[in-house]
């Protein structure tokens, strides 16, 4: 009895989570613009979507910005984590606390504060809001995630390894590349992947730091939702949903396989 109730409960929560997505998928194939009555099946909205230059160009922008910002954030953050882990307790605490500010602060405040900074410089240095301000903003909210992913890996590492490499004649850079980097690689990678995810998905910070020239996909989506009904959004949601499902399933398969491999490895030891 208890088990059945539990299953009903989980089913209800899942229904709540999936009904809106299901509705969008169904109506993305609707022949009319109605969001209540299915009048027939069509792929028209998908064709319209791919022919929509604004959506396609903002998709390109989003991907370019996410990749550039994540790569730079990963490099900046990894070196930062190495430096921070070697610091004394008090400066380390101060810096990690400041680093978590963009993670804890509401997005709107991160966005507004960067906007104030950019307005200040734009007036004095004669540049415009757009690609550069977006990349800077994205790096700023990505770096903390890289640092927070890499720091624990550095703390788990045996500090003697690095010193041994230096004693055996490695230059600091070589010791980093040959000894430290392989050890912290899982943290670097997950920091990078989180950066990409947050960059692709961000609306609020981008909204305040983008100019009229550089739009990202979420900003375009926002302006579409402000206008009258545009069924292309449903088509876009369906495509994004399918991409997300594929990515997550693949990720899940890889992690379970890795888990199996490590547990088998342990058994063999």
């Amino acid at each position: 009895m208890k088990k059945i109730l539990g299953k009903i409960y989980i089913a209800l929560v899942l229904m709540f989570l999936y009904i809106p997505i299901f509705v969008m998928i169904v109506f993305s194939f609707n022949t009319t613009k109605s969001r209540t009555v299915m009048s027939g099946f069509t792929f028209d909205w998908y064709i319209k979507l791919f022919n929509n230059e604004l959506i396609m160009s903002s998709l390109r922008n989003t991907i370019i910005i996410a990749v550039i910002a994540s790569v730079l954030a990963t490099v900046l953050g990894t070196f930062a984590a190495v430096g921070i882990s070697r610091m004394k307790k008090i400066p380390r605490m101060i810096i990690t606390n400041i680093t978590t500010i963009p993670m804890i602060n509401p997005d709107i405040i991160t966005g507004v504060s960067l906007m104030l900074l950019f307005v200040f410089f734009a007036a004095r240095m004669n540049f415009e809001f757009g690609f550069v301000t977006l990349v800077i903003a994205h790096i700023t909210f990505d770096v903390p995630y890289v640092i927070m992913n890499v720091l624990p890996k550095l703390n788990q590492m045996d500090p003697n390894l690095h010193e041994a490499a230096l004693d055996l004649g490695c230059s600091p850079m070589m010791a980093f590349r040959k000894v430290v980097l392989p050890e912290i690689m899982p943290g670097v990678l997950s920091g990078f992947l989180m950066s990409v995810t947050f960059s692709l998905d961000d609306f609020v910070v981008s909204y305040f730091t983008s100019g009229a020239t550089s739009q990202t996909l979420p900003i375009t989506i926002y302006s579409m939702t402000r206008r009258k009904v545009s069924p292309e959004i449903n088509a876009l949601s369906t495509i994004i949903f399918i991409v997300v499902v594929i990515v997550l399933v693949v990720k899940n398969i890889i992690t379970t396989r890795n888990l199996k491999l490590t547990s088998e490895g342990e058994r063999n030891d």
């Binding site: 809106p20 969008m24 926002y222 939702t225």
Partner: peptide, 17 residues
């Protein structure tokens, strides 16, 4: 999984409902 969809799209879906 739903969390990975952009929240603008998810909120827009509720407008229709």
């Amino acid at each position: 999984l739903p969390m990975w969809m952009n929240f603008l799209l998810r909120t827009y879906a509720w407008m229709a409902i």
